[in-house]
């Protein structure tokens, strides 16, 4: 379950910010956001409802144009 305190998020502009980010969803977009944030010096919580990250892309056999396997 996800619990958020909206006031805490909304007050980011005035209070000193917290250097952590919650990424909700561990598909290709969530993984990319998480990696970029971690590489930029932020702590990341990556939340995924299923037992493994990867999302829909992990189900695809091959992808255009390189025909790389999605894994």
């Amino acid at each position: 379950m996800l619990h958020t305190d909206m006031h805490a998020v909304a007050s980011v502009a005035t209070a000193p910010p917290v250097g952590a980010v919650l990424v909700v969803g561990g598909g290709i977009a969530g993984m990319q956001s998480a990696l970029d944030l971690a590489d930029s010096g932020y702590f990341v919580y990556l939340l995924e409802k299923s037992p493994a990250i990867g999302g829909t892309m992990a189900q695809l056999d091959k992808t255009f144009p390189t025909n790389d396997c999605s894994m």
């Binding site: 379950m1 619990h3 958020t4 805490a8 998020v9 980011v12 910010p17 917290v18 250097g19 952590a20 980010v21 919650l22 990424v23 909700v24 969803g25 561990g26 598909g27 977009a29 969530g30 956001s33 944030l37 932020y42 919580y45 999302g55 829909t56």
Partner: peptide, 17 residues
């Protein structure tokens, strides 16, 4: 139930077919 203190949130909740 975890309580996380974060400065920002990114929603990448994806699709269903």
């Amino acid at each position: 139930t975890l309580e996380l203190n974060v400065g920002s949130i990114i929603l990448t909740t994806g699709l269903q077919t």
